[in-house]
């Protein structure tokens, strides 16, 4: 397997507060990586480094290398827009645009200048099928996305990200605002999607990490404590802090 992401000595500060300390981690192609840890441990911050969403935050300073397909994306010369086309993101709360379902899916491709109606139609159909939403919405593609349920909205956001044909999907607690049934659907979807994409998912739920991921990274207070195959992390972690966390002694 290939390393799609190779992170070397990543440090991140918000103003004078250090939020990530010396993170080094390799992420393989086509697998699901779960980032776990208590609130404020830096797992979301780390995720946002991978598509440079931290650029939007004033006073945020990042040092170290983030190699994506062997190119350092943590440099001014790397175009963050190109990066975000390859590395899609799904957010904690579903955030469809107040447009039709169809318009939501083609937002990304349209921004790239794609206007051919046939191509756009097929992008919409393929993306929605991959996101397991096609059957729910095929008869109302042109009605507002805001009329969908929370779980459907989140799958629409996944379809919207897939429409860009990215290599990687970042998911920032994608099920924390959803009910258990919708959560199950998203988890099944992640299982399907990992055939085509590398998925890096931040989750609060250790059960979720155990269910869906191949690898798990445990973060604590800005440090990467342990990173290994998910069964190893949950069956016999090497670090006592990891063990304490997954057995529920804190967090």
């Amino acid at each position: 397997m290939n390393n799609i992401f190779e992170i070397i000595n990543l440090n991140l500060w918000y103003g004078s507060k250090q939020a990530l300390k010396n993170i080094s981690i390799n992420i393989d192609d086509n697998c699901v990586v779960a980032l776990i840890g208590p609130s404020g441990c830096g797992k979301s911050t780390f995720l946002r480094c991978l598509n440079r969403m931290n650029d939007l935050i004033a006073n945020c300073r990042i040092e170290g290398s983030i190699l994506f397909n062997n190119e350092n994306v943590n440099s001014d010369s790397y175009n963050e827009i190109e990066l975000r086309k390859k590395v899609g993101m799904v957010f904690q709360r579903p955030n469809p645009f107040p447009m039709s379902i169809y318009e939501n899916v083609i937002y990304g491709p349209k921004c790239q200048g794609l206007t051919n109606k046939k191509e756009l139609d097929s992008i919409v159909e393929n993306s929605l099928k991959k996101a397991a939403l096609w059957d729910d919405v095929k008869d109302r593609l042109h009605s507002s996305a805001l009329g969908l349920s929370g779980g459907q909205q989140q799958r629409l956001c996944i379809a919207r990200a897939i429409a860009m044909e990215p290599d990687v999907l970042l998911m920032d607690e994608p099920t924390s605002a959803l009910d258990p049934i919708a959560t199950t659907k998203i988890e099944e979807l992640i299982n399907e999607l990992k055939k085509d994409y590398t998925i890096i998912i931040v989750t609060h739920s250790m059960q979720q990490a155990a269910r869906i991921s191949d690898y798990t990274a445990f973060f604590l207070m800005g440090e990467l404590i342990e990173y290994d195959k998910t069964d190893v992390i949950f069956a016999n972690p090497k670090n006592s802090k990891t063990e304490d966390y997954i057995t529920g002694r804190f967090g």
């Binding site: 598509n51 969403m53 939007l56 827009i81 190109e82 975000r84 086309k85 899609g88 993101m89 957010f91 709360r93 955030n95 469809p96 645009f97 107040p98 937002y107 990304g108 921004c111 790239q112 956001c157 919207r160 990200a161 860009m164």
Partner: peptide
């Protein structure tokens, strides 16, 4: 306008200009 939607647009590889124009 929710920050979520602005971020959602940027995360899809839209430029700031496009985000202003379309969202």
């Amino acid at each position: 306008i929710k920050v979520d939607q602005i971020q959602g647009s940027l995360a899809l590889g839209a430029s700031k200009f496009t985000t202003i124009n379309r969202v």
